[in-house]
Each structure stands twice: as C-alpha cells, then as structure tokens.
Design a protein around this nucleic acid. Structure first.
Lengths: 232, 232
DNA sequence: CGATTAATTGACAAAACTCAATACGAGTGG
DNA sequence: CCACTCGTATTGAGTTTTGTCAATTAATCG
C-alpha cells in the first residue's frame, strides 16, 4: 500500500528508510483529521523525491522536514522547512518539484491526495482549506524570495532566527532542529558565512549561543531592525 | 465601484492612474470567462498595493505586470512578471503581500474575488481551477527561489532569457517588455551586473542584442547548459 | 534636434566564497 | 573515565564575484 524508495542517497547526506508505526483512522487533528496514517521517519529519510508522483499530502506531527532541490553540481536550495503542525506536499499538481526529507527523527501524518481531492469535490469547506493552505505556502515562498534576492548575510540570518523563533513558539531561546548546512542552503549562503554571521551577532550581544543549535535571542528589537528593512 | 489609489509613487518610478475602457460581461476567455471587466492601465500604473484588501483577481490581456515589494531603504524585489494570459492576485488571502504595477501599456481583466469564491462553492470545477492556478504560482515561486538562492549572474540571466522566450512564445528572438532595472530586481542583481552579463553573452555569441530590449537567442543549447545546472 | 531617461562601460571597494586548518561534541571502546 | 573517531561547526587567509560610484553612450519623446 505504501511504497518506499530505496534509491538516491543525496550527495550530502545518506537517506534511510521510514518506519510505519501506527494506523490512525480516527484520532487525527486539523486538516487531515480522520483521514491520515502516521509514519515515523528516521533522521535524513526521504519522504518524497523530486519527480515522484504527488500521491500524498503530509502534516508534520513531530520533528522537522526540509523541502529541497539539488543541482547537478551539488548546490542545494532548501525551499522551506516544515515544523510540527505544518502541512506540505501541496506544491505539486502531478509531480513534486522538490524533494522532502526528515531532518531529525520525525513523525508525519499522510493522506492520499485523491482522498482529499474527492472530499473537496463534495465539500466546499475542504476545497477552501486546500486552497487557503496553498496560498499560505505561496506567501511564504514570496517572503523567502525577498530574503534571497536582496538581503545581506546578516539580514538573512536575523530573518531566519526570527522566523524560527516564531514558528517554534520559542520564548527567548530557540532550539534549531537543523544543521548549519541546512540553514546555509535555506538562506542561499555558505556554511562558513552563516557561522561567521552567528558569531558576529553573538559578539554584538544580539544573541547567545550556549550550544551550536541553541540560540538565545538577547536583543530581539535589534534583530527586528535588521529584518525590518525587509518589509516595505 | 472601482476605487483607485492616488498615493505612493514608488521611489523608482512614478505611478499613474488606470483608465477603465470597457465592460465585458460576456466575451471573456479562460478562467475569468463571462465574469470580468477589462481595464486599461498606462505604463507604471499601480494595479494594487501591498496591504490592499484583496478584492480582485486579475488576468493579463495585453502588456505585462510586475509583482514587487519594496524595502524601506529602496531595495526592491520583483517576485514575478505576468504576461498575456497569466492570472494573478491569487497570492492573497485577505491582503496582497506584494504590489502589482503595469509595465508597459497594459490591459487587464478583473473579477471580484468573492464572485469567484461564491462560484467555487457551487462549482467544484471552479474551486479546482483556483487551486490549480495557485499551485502553479507556488511552483514558479519555488523555481525562482532556486535561481535567487544559489545561482551566479550568468546563470540567472540565462534562466531569465529562457523563461521569457518560453512564456512569450518567442521563436529565436525575444522582445522584453521590461527595463534592465526590472530584470535586475527580478534576478536579485544590480542593473550593471545584468548589463555586463548580457554584453558578455553577446561577446560569446550566445545571444544577439540588436536593440536593448530585443534579444536574439543564437545558441540556445549554451543557455540551456548554463541553466541546467539549475535543475536536479 | 535637444532634452530626458535608459543602458553600458570602467575603476575600485566590499561582501561573500573557497580552501585549509582547527576546535567542538557525541558516541564508542579500551 | 579517558582516548579516539567521526561528523559538525568555527576560524583564518586569500580569491572571486558582485556591488558601488562615476562617466559615457544610446534610445526615446517632445
């Protein structure tokens, strides 16, 4: 019923196989309520690959997912991170344009796309939800374009930290689920530039870095200002 | 009924007012068939502004539109160009996140969003079309992110030329509707870098530039190669 | 034809990248 | 508990690309 790929470890990271842990025919929340099954993915598993048939729509329960695309020479762009509660897999009409991989150990809810589509034909509310969710993704993508197009390294990193703090509902400090390489590929920078920029922000007293993946936001207004040049 | 802003000429370009020319209750094609009215916009008119209520959905009939966002210090990112046949204004739930301006003299079809939404409630086909169209935009945005994130100037310009050639159905040569500044802001480069890159491509015999807005694609495979590093 | 805007070109500066070395941290085995 | 290893992150030195500022040329519009 579910069919998993065994192929294509990415150049950067080995890809392992997911583990189906439970069927959840009833007790699911939100958009996929009552329809999905839960699947657990080990760190760096491929959830779907570029050019796969877009058979499922997904929701993160626990962990995190990166949506990425690889160029032939190994450059990688991460288009989005998905965190608990986020729905993804909508960005496809027939085939996925990016691949999706679990970042840490991750639990995902998945629903057959055609189940939702069939539902949407009967139920305008479901149709509306699918559309709205897609519009949200589009807006996020546009925000990300802004960041990638015209912002310097400091602005990118500041924007990233604020985004993560918001989306992880962090008070004061963020526990990042992803590596520096993931961050770099999300921000269109190199890992070295990300690292240097974080160090500089720490020297400036704007953030603290008690552990490499834990960031304390010491001066949020300063981050906002770096970032606000972003908005109109 | 229609209400037009008089405010905020952009720092870069003056914004003028549109001219309503005709009502077209019946003879429209495609997604907005039978529902829209046609409006003509002079060069550099504002079609909608950031944070406007998202009251309409649009379709380009003639001319071209840029979707852009301005930072407080004047940096501008163009998120998309819309060409004849393209639908836009979908990227909003309640308010537009970017502003839209006509590039040349442009004719636009517009339909009240709530007319379409009402239609979609009754007609799953319309609902599906709205969703599909939005997914298309999302995919385009993701493609654009790839370009902005990890590609050098030559790759960006090559990708841009190919995109325009495709979308304008050009055989061999493209007539660009937009300025070098627009191209630069779309590609996340400066106008100088765009200019130099075009000149270099011309020196290399890959393109010809008989007039600054007319580009002859002399060696399409070469452009494809510059570009293919983009795809996976 | 003259004026105004758009585009190109040049010289130099700055930001980010590359390559290389080092440090850190988690996990493993002696 | 310590030492070793492996993956991850940081730091440094030097290069490359793109951006900035300024001047020039080309195109467009009265």
């Amino acid at each position: 019923m579910l069919q998993w790929r065994t192929e294509t470890p990415s150049p950067r990271e080995a890809v392992t196989r997911p583990i189906v842990t439970q069927l959840s025919p009833t007790s699911l929340k939100g958009l996929l309520e009552g329809l999905g099954i839960a699947v657990r993915f080990e760190r760096d598993s491929e959830i779907f690959a570029e050019d796969d048939d877009a058979e499922y729509i997904y929701r993160v329960v626990r962990g995190a997912v990166r949506l990425s695309k690889l160029m032939s020479d190994g450059r990688r762009q991460i288009g989005a991170f998905f965190l608990p509660g986020d729905v993804f897999g909508l960005e496809a009409e027939n085939r996925y344009a990016f691949s999706a991989e679990s970042i840490g150990d991750t639990e995902i809810l998945l629903v057959k796309r055609n189940v939702l589509v069939a539902e949407a034909v009967k139920d305008p509310t479901m149709a509306r939800q699918l559309w709205t969710e897609t519009v949200d993704h589009l807006r996020q993508a546009q925000g990300h374009m802004l960041l990638l197009g015209r912002k310097n390294a400091q602005e990118r990193v500041a924007a990233f930290l604020m985004e993560m703090a918001d989306r992880l509902h962090s008070a004061g400090s963020v526990e990042l689920p992803m590596s520096r390489q993931d961050i770099a590929d999300y921000l269109g920078l190199t890992i070295e530039t990300v690292s240097r920029t974080l160090t500089q922000l720490e020297r400036d007293g704007v953030i603290g870095i008690p552990a490499s993946r834990r960031i304390v936001l010491r001066n949020r207004p300063a981050l906002e200002i770096m970032n606000d040049r972003l908005a109109a």
